[in-house]
Amino acid sequence: MNTFLNLPLAGAVYEDIPLGHFLTLSLAMFALGSIGVLIRKNPVIVFMCIELMLNAVNLSFLAFAAYPNSHVQANNAFESAMAGQAMVIVVMAIAAAEVAVGLGIIMAIFRYRNNVDVDDMNTMRG
């Protein structure tokens, strides 16, 4: 049989890399995404930065799912891993719906005003 997939690449990372490294990557991506939301003017890129933040959260969910706590029973560890993945799928679906509606709104604003600078959208300002 094909032994290529029995290579240690798939699944056994929890012995080699500490959980904290995955979380650090997630934190860095989340921080970069939030910086992007704060400083960019183009609404499409602001949107992309929001997607980046969502993905950072997804990564931390999956990292926690793959690293079972040694205090938890093995059976519960499997269930908590499933919970993490279910959450990720929910986040993905929400992101997809959000992108469809959000890009639709951006296109509608563009058709209405011929300009999509986020700093100029201040008609709702009180």
Binding site: P18, G20, Y67, P68, N69, S70, V72, A74, F78, A81
Partner: peptide, 10 residues
């Protein structure tokens, strides 16, 4: 979390 996690599971 750098050290405390990691155990056997399916």
């Amino acid at each position: 979390t750098m050290q405390s996690f990691g155990g056997e599971m399916d």
